[in-house]
């Protein structure tokens, strides 16, 4: 592992930790965007160029913006006065620490992990496109369907309630 990889990983993890621990929600969302960028940089160093660019396009360009919009629409842009943690936060921290310990122990002691690194695989855009249109065409179609359904659902959920009650009132 190169120094640059380790640095990127440290930045990513630090940004993720601050995204989960800062008091101001907008700062959390911005730290989350930094963390996503770091993960994209990790993908680029793992020779997955297409996924790295898609990560930035989807997560930084769309999901971070969506989260920011939701923060402003729910008027939670200011840091709250009272506690930001749930009542059982100590148990939560303990469980997540245990999860990390277990995963780390498993990763470090597993015999299934190959000892030497294989040469970098090639995943050109052409290969990815061919695979998407032949082997993975069914998942692709299903994803298209899921996205359409999610979009319609999100629009219906977020629709103004007044119009809904109006129509209900007209019916009754």
């Amino acid at each position: 592992m190169s120094i640059f990889f380790i640095l990127t990983a440290i930045v990513t993890l630090f940004a993720a930790a601050s995204a989960m621990s800062l008091r101001n929600l907008v700062h959390c969302a911005l730290a989350l965007a930094v963390s996503f960028t770091g993960i994209a940089a990790l993908y680029l160093q793992l020779d997955a160029q297409f996924v790295g660019f898609a990560e930035i396009l989807v997560y930084v360009g769309a999901i971070a913006i969506l989260i920011v919009f939701a923060i402003l629409l729910t008027r939670s842009g200011e840091a709250p006065e009272n506690s930001v943690l749930t009542s059982g936060w100590m148990a939560g921290i303990a469980i997540s620490a245990m999860v990390f310990t277990l995963l780390g122990w498993a990763v470090l002691n597993s015999s299934a992990i190959p000892k030497e690194n294989p040469p970098a695989p090639v995943a050109t855009v052409k290969n990815v496109g061919d695979a998407l249109m032949t082997k993975f065409v069914l998942p692709l179609e299903i994803i298209g369907l899921v996205l359409t359904a999610a979009m319609i659902g999100a629009v219906i959920i977020a629709l103004k309630e007044s119009s809904k009650s109006e129509t209900a009132g007209r019916e009754s």
Binding site: F53, A54, A64, I65, G77
Partner: peptide, 23 residues
Amino acid sequence: DAGLLFFFAVGGAVELSVFMAGW
């Protein structure tokens, strides 16, 4: 190889800076 995707991906980050400035 994916130059066009790169262009659109980095273009998406501009929106975040606009939000940062405004907020």
